[in-house]
């Protein structure tokens, strides 16, 4: 095995982990902005998306060069494919964090009432945990941890579905709070998407470790 190639692979690994923690921070920031109704945090969550996009592009380009110049095979090839897949998922998670930030800004602008409903509290906790676990599974190349994440996605989907009922009931009972409830439903949707992307990362980890392509059934939440 070429030392030079090993160095390149190692650099790619480090860049991937950097992007992972960058996106994790980004999501935490957006959620804190929602919890604390904080305009500065929300604005930062919107702004940070450019950094995530730039980093994703950089890694995509480097992984492309690695394939073109070194023609990796077997576990090396699976790793490069994993990188290419995971960075796209991370970039989209960044987009969700960006959108949550925008939602918070809209709410603050409208002067609407602003607590996170308990359902959303729960789904956000589950979703952030799934993201964190998926990155851990990637770091540790732990397929069983990854499979646990894939199973956990149903819970977040279920919570998001319950948010629809919450919205329908709320809209009937408190029509004045409609703006707030709309934004909460939207944020719930973003949180649910974050869990979906974390699930995709976990599926990729299974592929990386076991070489088996897995896809959870098509039961994405509405």
């Amino acid at each position: 095995m070429s030392v030079h190639f090993e160095k390149q692979i190692d650099q790619l690994r480090r860049q991937l982990l950097t992007l992972g923690s960058m996106v994790e921070d980004h999501v935490m920031l957006a959620i804190r902005a929602a919890e604390e109704q904080n305009r500065d945090l929300a604005q930062e969550a919107v702004d940070r998306d450019d950094d995530v996009d730039a980093m994703q592009m950089e890694i995509a380009e480097e992984s492309l060069h690695l394939v073109a110049l070194f023609q990796p095979v077997a576990s090396d090839l699976r790793f490069v494919i994993t990188v290419q897949t995971v960075i796209n998922e991370l970039e989209r998670i960044g987009d969700q964090a960006h959108d949550i930030g925008q939602g918070v800004l809209r709410l603050l602008d409208s002067g609407a009432h602003f607590d996170l409903p308990p359902l959303l509290q729960r789904s956000k906790e589950a979703s952030v945990e799934m993201l964190r676990q998926s990155l851990d599974a990637l770091l540790d190349r732990d397929a069983s941890k990854a499979r646990a994440i894939i199973a956990a996605d149903d819970k977040v989907d279920e919570l998001h579905r319950s948010m629809y009922d919450w919205f329908k009931n709320g809209a009937r009972q408190r029509p004045d709070d409609l703006d707030w409830m709309m934004e909460m439903l939207t944020i719930s949707r973003h949180v649910e998407r974050i869990a979906d992307h974390a699930t995709n990362i976990a599926e990729t980890v299974v592929y990386l470790v076991e070489g088996e392509m897995v896809r959870r059934g098509g039961d994405r939440a509405p």
């Binding site: 998306d49 592009m57 995509a60 380009e61 492309l64 290419q84 796209n88 970039e91 960006h98």
Partner: peptide, 13 residues
């Protein structure tokens, strides 16, 4: 914001 990013970017030159 970049939504549907191309998987393989064009290289710079």
């Amino acid at each position: 914001m970049q939504r549907e990013i191309e998987n393989i970017p064009q290289t710079r030159n």
